[in-house]
Design a protein around this nucleic acid. Sequence first.
RNA 1: GCGAGCGUAGCCAAGUGGUUAAGGCAGAGGAUUGUGGUUCCUCCAUUCGUGGGUUCGAGUCCCAUCGUUCGCCCCA
Length: 427
Amino acid sequence: MGEIQALRGTRDILPEEVGYWQQVETRARDILFKAAYREIRTPIFEQTELFERGIGEATDVVGKEMYTFCDRGDRSITLRPEGTAGVVRSLIEHSLYTQGGVQRLWYTGPMFRYERPQAGRQRQFHQLGVEVLGSADPRADVEVIAIATNILQALGLKNLHLDINSVGNLEDRQAYRQALIDYLTPYKDELDPDSQDRLSRNPLRILDSKDKRTQEITQNAPSILDHLGTYSRQHFDKVQQLLTDLGISYQLNPRLVRGLDYYTHTAFEIQSDDLGAQATVCGGGRYDGLVAQLGGPETPAVGWAIGLERLILLLQQLQQPTLPSVDFYVVSRGDAAQDQALVLAQKLRQAGFSVDLDLSGSAFKKQFARADRSGAIACLILGDEEAANQTVKLKWMASKEQSAIPQAELLTNIEELRSQLHRGEGR
RNA sequence: GCGAGCGUAGCCAAGUGGUUAAGGCAGAGGAUUGUGGUUCCUCCAUUCGUGGGUUCGAGUCCCAUCGUUCGCCCCA
């Protein structure tokens, strides 16, 4: 039909659906406010180098998924593929780390990754994320996890499960990586082709391969948890103890590996049973090295991001779309009446009512049918007769009761009208 | 980047080589030239994503292309 369509992997959020988004935003905003997190809004594009250095050049996100282009000044620009790098850049740029010990921040907005779309995955998608910067305390890890579960729970989501793991610090991971390579190398020919490739590049990823034979082989592979140093071990034990104290159930998953280079220690994912292959609703973890990596002072940090499209997919399974309705629907026919109707609508809106004004000028019958569908509590009717004597008919949709009143009187007692409206609503 | 399925009106769809492309919802007009979730009538695709091919004849078969869906990779 129309030649121009939304680009692949992008889509319109139409009025019928937007209620879900508003619901998520208000719920989350409230919960984050109560936990003393402050919103931060950073640009949607950044210097390409920020993501290359922050996320890691070897990752798929940087290697093949970024929307990168040159602007007219010949700078390399990238549409942000995730939110953390921009927040950290901002923290450093504005020296936010000097304002007291810990920064608790949250953000939301569109992210961009050049990938093949599928269920729960688009090229432009939206995340809501939090970052706690400046604390290495395991309580920070658990606090962010708790906030994520609060948000998901407040929205009434079910069938979610939390997986946690520790990937330790850099030394732990290097030692483990070698142990894993030593274990897997004898089986190299039996691994699936992707995993053979990963053996040298990113062996930890082999652990969550979906290939059956590969899974059998990794069944007896060494566990990262046996390669954690004392500090990492203690940190992770504390995280688990605190989760238990808060009554948050979790599953220990030593195969859980997060994709971005900056993660250290705690890694976690919240997955849903009710999504397709892309089941992760929330993913996050600790990233103690990132701030320094990007040129700031050594600053431990932990955070997560929720994929809002996936969240809303789940919400839609639970709830009917909400149809917004209005207090008054104004029906009018005839030049003078239609003009007066506009004036009346304006005054009612200024008085705080919600008013839908029919602009069609079509037969009353049609206008009433639309009024009915709009869900309005009452109709205001202006025709030639009313226009001539400056009145308006007020009709309660549920009871079909109707009376004529002078236009000037309609607004003289707002409170009376408002309470009538509530009664009219009940009928 | 790879694999598989699908593409008929704003939406849901019938149609599986043979004259004018069912039906439903939504929409417009009317029966009721000022009154609504009911009823009835009328209208609403020179055309089946696009381009090419096979055929006397194609929405229906073939090829290409674009789009879309699901999966792989990867991630939220």
